[in-house]
Simulated assay, not measured.
Amino acid sequence: MPQHPYSGMWVTDDGQVRHELLPNGRYDEARGRRESAYQGRYEVRGTHIDYWDDTGFTADGDFVDENTLHHGGMILRRKL
């Protein structure tokens, strides 16, 4: 899978939710002190992202710009 420009770590402003978008199409989400709270696969099409959690849960989001992701009512920002 070719690496897309959105690979990397995305974090809410309070640091409580952290999405790591891995270049292999997998993601690892941490919540608070709970590392790897959710894991699964994702696909990016244009500026839209779809998530499929390993437990069967699905979600999606949209990249507003190269540093801002809107997902599930949250705003995540690229961690540089």
Score class of each variant (00 low, 15 high):
residue 22 L to G: 06
residue 12 T to N: 02
residue 53 D to K: 01
residue 9 M to N: 15
residue 36 S to D: 02
residue 17 V to A: 10
residue 41 R to N: 06
residue 4 H to I: 10
residue 71 H to D: 14
residue 55 T to V: 11
residue 80 L to E: 11
residue 50 D to W: 04
residue 21 L to V: 02
residue 25 G to W: 02
residue 50 D to H: 07
residue 18 R to W: 04
residue 28 D to I: 02
residue 65 D to S: 11
residue 41 R to M: 02
residue 14 D to V: 06
residue 34 R to Y: 14
residue 49 I to A: 02
residue 42 Y to D: 02
residue 51 Y to W: 07
residue 74 M to G: 09
residue 66 E to M: 10
residue 79 K to N: 15
residue 56 G to M: 03
residue 43 E to A: 13
residue 25 G to A: 10
residue 75 I to T: 07
residue 9 M to S: 07
residue 2 P to W: 07
residue 60 D to T: 15
residue 38 Y to E: 15
residue 58 T to A: 12
residue 24 N to A: 05
residue 18 R to A: 15
residue 19 H to L: 12
residue 57 F to M: 11
residue 13 D to L: 07
residue 33 R to D: 14
residue 26 R to G: 03
residue 59 A to E: 06
residue 55 T to R: 09
residue 20 E to T: 05
residue 30 A to N: 08
residue 70 H to P: 09
residue 69 L to E: 00
residue 53 D to C: 04
residue 3 Q to M: 10
residue 1 M to Q: 09
residue 9 M to K: 08
residue 77 R to E: 03
residue 33 R to M: 10
residue 45 R to I: 11
residue 61 G to W: 01
residue 5 P to S: 08
residue 44 V to F: 03
residue 30 A to Q: 10
residue 25 G to K: 05
residue 16 Q to P: 07
residue 4 H to T: 12
residue 68 T to L: 08
residue 74 M to P: 01
residue 46 G to Y: 12
residue 53 D to A: 00
residue 52 W to P: 11
residue 46 G to E: 10
residue 16 Q to A: 12
residue 28 D to M: 01
residue 27 Y to H: 00
residue 20 E to H: 09
residue 43 E to L: 11
residue 15 G to S: 06
residue 44 V to C: 06
residue 47 T to K: 12
residue 14 D to T: 06
residue 6 Y to P: 03
residue 47 T to N: 08
residue 26 R to D: 06
residue 79 K to G: 13
residue 8 G to R: 03
